[in-house]
Structures are given as structure tokens and as C-alpha cells.
Amino acid sequence: MTRLLAACVTWVLLHSVPALAEGEKIQVLAYAQPPFMELRHDRPAGLAIDILNMLFQRAEVDYSILFLPPKRAYVTALSEPNNCVLAIERSQAREALFQWVSPILITRHGFYSNQTDNYNIRTLNDAKPLVIGSYLGSGVGEYLEKLGFNVDLTSSNDLNIRKLQLKRVNLWASDTVSAAVIINQSNLPIKLEHVFLTTLRAMGCNLSTSPTLVERLQNELKSMYQDQSIRQLYRNYLGQDADWLSN
């Protein structure tokens, strides 16, 4: 599914969004990661997409969404003016590379193993001797690599499932919400071993993007948290009582 979604499909929003004061249009580059971002019937959908739509409409900023593979989305936003990548992990190592609108999402990341494995992982360091699957463009993959972990990178997150099942990697590093979706959709015999990192998932915009525009989006995002709009969008996906940060 992800391979199909990864194909470049553009969905331009034609909603009645007023013209930009800056006269600019932002191209948001997303990548498939259900339930946050995916193409459903050729239309962008998911929690991060819903947050994005509300954000741009409230800020009255014109935009379009293009789905790409994660690494390509990342490098395109790095190099192309008025391009932003959604929703990548904001980190100190990346801080100077983009202008940020954050947090779009807040996610926990954990190590997953086959049900039959028994690694007894209680801390991040316990996973050091193991091979860990992640994907190109993943901030968590970068984080683990910098710490000297043996990380095996694929082109998309879901490909790690197969590698894990074939025992080509010992662990799969993934955010807990999208991992839960993948595991439960196919009833996979995979378990969460240990949560090791929380990330602020953000929209990273090319450095040439108008700072005024970025500030406007940031202020609007903040007001969406404060008036509970974001919480309501989370509830739409995770249920009324869901606390996705408690694992």
C-alpha cells in the first residue's frame, strides 16, 4: 500500500482559502504513515493532514499537498523555496536546517520485536547489541545512528515489518501509534519491547520561506492547542479517552 502511496500524487486544495498577504503558496510534502498521513482514494487524509488543513485554513495561507517517499520529501524541502515537509521529527541536529512549525504531532517511539523473541529490553542501551530497522529520512533512525546503534534503513516504515519477520533485523523502531495501526490491521505477531524516545513532529519549511508566514502559522498552531481544536482532532482518530502518550 505504501509503495502505491509513495508514488507522486498531487492533491491540490481548491478550498475557498483567501489569497495570501505574502502572495505565496506553500507546497507541503507529506509521506505515507497511517494514521497520520496517507492517501485515501487519492485524497490526503490522516491526523496530521487534518491538523494541517485546519492550520492553513485558519491562518488563511494557500497551500497544496504532495505525497513523496520520506527521504525525497525531506531533501526537497531542504532545497526548494516555499516547500515544507510534514511531519518530521524536530531535533537539535535538524534545528538549523529548516524553519519550523511545531509541534504538529507529539509521538512516542519504541522498539518492536517478534512475539517469540525475548530480548528483555529495559533501557535504550539494552538494544545496543541488536540490529534495528528504521527508514530513510527518519529522525529516530538518525538519532540511533548518532548514538552508535546498528541501524538498517529501508525506504519506508512498513518495509521494516517484513524484515523483522524474516529476522533480518532484531527490532523495528517506530512511533507507537502508526506501529499499532500496522500491527493490528494485519494482526501481526509483533510486540512493543520498550519506548525510548518522544519526538515533536513538525512541519519543516525551507529556510527561504518568509519568516512572517512561518510565525503566522506557528501562532495559529499554538491557538489550536489552546482552544482544544487539536485535542478534538486527536479524539477523532484515537477515541474520546485515548491517551496516546501513555504506553
Binding site: R90, S91, Q92, A93, E95, S102, P103, I106, T123, L124, Y143, H194, V195, F196, L197, T198, L200, K222, Y225, Q226, I230, L245
Partner: peptide, 24 residues
Amino acid sequence: VHEITGEDDLVRKLLSQIETGINI
């Protein structure tokens, strides 16, 4: 779960918890 991250990340996360009201 004792996470280790860059100092700047930590500052951003603390600010985010205050501004979003979400207990990160």
C-alpha cells in the same frame, strides 16, 4: 523511560508542554 536528547530539544519540549498543555 529516561530519555536522552540534545539540550535544545529538551528546551523545545519543555516549551511545547507548557504551550500545548499536553503532558509530554
